[in-house]
């Protein structure tokens, strides 16, 4: 594509680098910004640049934060003895939106996958064990994806915590809420049957 302006071309090529944005969409966004009032566009630019400059990672849980310690870690209503281990910040947002969890988080920043060059040393694992020891954490919930890499990471973490007096739990896996048994895949259904629950627990969960 030929651009009449080098300035436009530069802006388009920056937008194109974003995930999910193709060439044409990038051009559309740039032309949209061009149509706006200069101060509106300036607001947009400022918001992004301030976000990038000022957002910090919480020193305890590595969640994104506006301060040295994030709002969750500094929250007084939170259970500070309970930590939920997740892969990334999106998972924190997903669990927070359930409004059913009142403990703290620990964001690993990924899962172990040597194939992709991610070894344990690239993840927030040492800081997790230190945190458990220093803060007297009583239970760690492993909320990682049920994949080969997720399972590897859970196993690795549990080995690393073997010597610590902490209870380790994982998310239960089974039939999705509102799903129909008929359409549930065999493996999920098989697991749900082998790890079935007493009915009283089911009532509590509802």
């Amino acid at each position: 594509m030929n651009f009449p302006s080098k300035l436009i071309e530069d802006a388009v090529s920056e937008f194109e680098k974003l995930p999910g944005i193709g060439h044409k969409t990038a051009l559309r966004l740039v032309l949209h910004l061009l149509k706006q009032q200069p101060q509106q566009a300036q607001q947009f630019v400022d918001a992004i640049s301030r976000m990038r400059r000022e957002v910090q990672y919480c020193r305890e849980c590595h969640n994104i934060s506006d301060a040295d310690l994030c709002a969750i870690c500094s929250g007084s209503k939170r259970n500070h003895k309970l930590v939920c281990v997740v892969e990334n910040i999106r998972d924190v947002i997903a669990i927070e939106s359930t409004q059913q969890y009142f403990g703290l988080y620990h964001v690993l920043g990924g899962v172990i996958s040597p194939l992709e060059g991610i070894g344990p040393e690239k993840l927030q694992i040492d800081s997790l064990t230190r945190r458990i020891e220093a803060n007297g954490i009583e239970e760690v919930i492993m909320a990682l994806n049920p994949t080969v890499e997720g399972d590897t990471t859970i196993y690795y973490l549990s080995k690393k915590m073997e010597h610590l007096p902490v209870k380790i739990t994982t998310l239960s896996r089974g039939v999705a809420f509102g799903a129909e048994l008929e359409y549930t895949d065999d493996m999920t259904l098989a697991r749900s049957i082998s790890s079935r629950l007493p009915y009283e627990n089911y009532l509590v969960q509802r």
Binding site: I112, S113, P114, L115, P120, E121, Y155, Y156, K159
Partner: peptide, 22 residues
């Protein structure tokens, strides 16, 4: 695959035996 991949990259670091155990 993951184990083999780890074995191939190991030259850059000391072996993490807990990971091998995993």
């Amino acid at each position: 695959q993951q184990r083999n991949s780890y074995l191939k990259q190991r030259y850059s670091q000391t072996t993490d035996h807990v990971l091998m155990d995993t």
